[in-house]
Amino acid sequence: MSPLSKVIMLSDERERIEDVLDTLIEKSGSLCAILITKDGHTISARGTTSFLNITALATLVAGSFAATRQVAALIGEKEFSILFQQGASRHVHISLVAGTAMLIAVFEDSQRIGLVRLHAKRAADGLAALMSVSRERTDREELIVAQFKEFASSLIDRIFSE
């Protein structure tokens, strides 16, 4: 792996990804749906998320998914494609998208698990298609790297002298 950065998604895919998440929320009756990368960065979050620290959620889900991937390897599986965590009143359904991202759905009615599973599967397929498109194109013109580095460097100095 080179230290070259990875471009997650381009602006024009944003709306299409949001549409897929909105459909999942609506059809499954979930509170929210969040798409994150394997390493725990948020790509998109839709629905009711004000009660949630999304960054923390993304990091923890990515960590636990990585851990279960190792568990899978230990028992001779490549990976587990779905994780489901059942609480007293809220539940989390996590599914793998194209091996590179994870789709998280939070919902309240445990009777809906079947619906959530069905629509999460459909959403994951839709997202996989969208994400393979964005991987093929890299359009970096919006970011002027030399200036970015200079400015970021001066911000670092400022933060630690505060």
């Binding site: 950065s5 990875k6 997650i8 381009l10 960065h41």
Partner: peptide, 12 residues
């Protein structure tokens, strides 16, 4: 690996 997200306009 740093990630640049042009949709949410974030660099991590």
């Amino acid at each position: 690996m740093s990630t640049i997200n042009f949709a949410t306009r974030e660099i991590n």
